[in-house]
């Protein structure tokens, strides 16, 4: 997520270059965490205070305490919707990873294929693909399939693009070394190209995961059957603000959990290869 650069900025502006390597558990190191957390709690408190003291705001807002109450009370009712959204997103994303990585690998490997498809892929990137949601309803109905496939459709491309970019951006010096060592192509691919591509791959996975969630939500808007997006739409229409925000909070949680899983996978992969991948250590 693009928020993270701010963390890096915070660390570098605290003045110590080596702090970018390790967060020191001193006041200087804790500041980037403690201070935003403090302000977050202040925001929450302020929100609660505003809703309590300005009844007019109740027409659009609900206080954090009300949201929490609804969450607890209606949780059993919300579970099937949580499951629906989570499953659609996860399955769509998983399939997108398979398709995206395969396509990205093919694009990196076959130069002519890349050449033939390049302008089309650029166009594909730019056009508002979200508009195709109704098409998927025509094709696959209003059930989980159409949402899942729509999520797949939206998320496979960032993954493919990132995979292709990562695989084709192996440092030429490393490839030259492999050529000088008479290494067979597949070994060069597995032992050198793939590890170098891993940071790009995970960036693509994070992007793809976000798109999968967006696809699921928009699919839920359009199919109007189930899922947390549907609950948001339904609750908002019924002016039930607390439920609306509760469903939103759950959506965030689902998104965060899946994103967290991707980050975890990244950390595990880095550990296995032995971090770091940053080309800072390349020369």
């Amino acid at each position: 997520m693009t928020v993270l650069p701010f963390i890096e900025q915070q660390i570098t502006t605290s003045g110590d270059a080596s702090a970018t390597r390790r967060l020191r558990w001193s006041m200087a190191g804790l500041r980037p965490i403690v201070l935003p957390l403090l302000f977050f709690l202040l925001w929450l408190g302020g929100w609660e205070w505003v809703v309590d003291h300005f009844p007019a705001s109740r027409s659009v807002l609900a206080s954090p305490s009300e949201i929490a109450a609804v969450l607890v009370k209606s949780f059993p009712l919300l579970v099937p919707h949580i499951v629906s959204t989570a499953c659609d997103t996860l399955l769509g994303f998983a399939l997108a990873v398979v398709v995206g990585v395969a396509l990205g690998g093919a694009l990196a490997q076959f130069h002519r294929l890349n050449q033939a498809l390049f302008p089309h892929l650029v166009l594909f990137q730019i056009v508002p693909k979200i508009a195709l949601a109704p098409l998927f309803v025509i094709w696959l109905g209003v059930g989980t399939e159409s949402r899942l496939v729509f999520a797949l459709f939206l998320s496979f491309f960032p993954i493919a693009a990132a995979t292709a970019a990562g695989l084709s951006s192996t440092r030429p010096e490393a490839l030259r070394l492999c050529a000088a060592l008479n290494a067979p192509r597949w070994r060069t691919f597995l032992c050198v190209r793939v590890p170098f591509a891993i940071p790009a791959l995970f960036a693509g996975l994070k992007m793809g995961m976000t798109m999968a969630l967006i696809g699921t939500i928009v699919g839920e808007f359009v199919t109007g059957q189930e899922g947390l997006g549907y609950v948001v739409m339904f609750a908002a229409a019924g002016a039930d603000n607390a439920l609306t925000f509760a469903a939103l909070a759950l959506l965030c949680a689902v998104g965060l959990l899946i994103y967290g899983a991707v980050v975890l996978a990244e950390v595990v992969t880095q550990r296995w290869y032995g971090a770091p991948f940053v080309t800072e250590g390349f020369n």
Binding site: R171, E173, A174, R176, L177, V192, P195, Y273, G274, A275, P276, F277, V278, T279, E280, G281, F282, N283
Partner: peptide
């Protein structure tokens, strides 16, 4: 360029 693989 020594071309050392950074993860090794």
């Amino acid at each position: 360029d020594p071309t050392l693989l950074p993860w090794k």
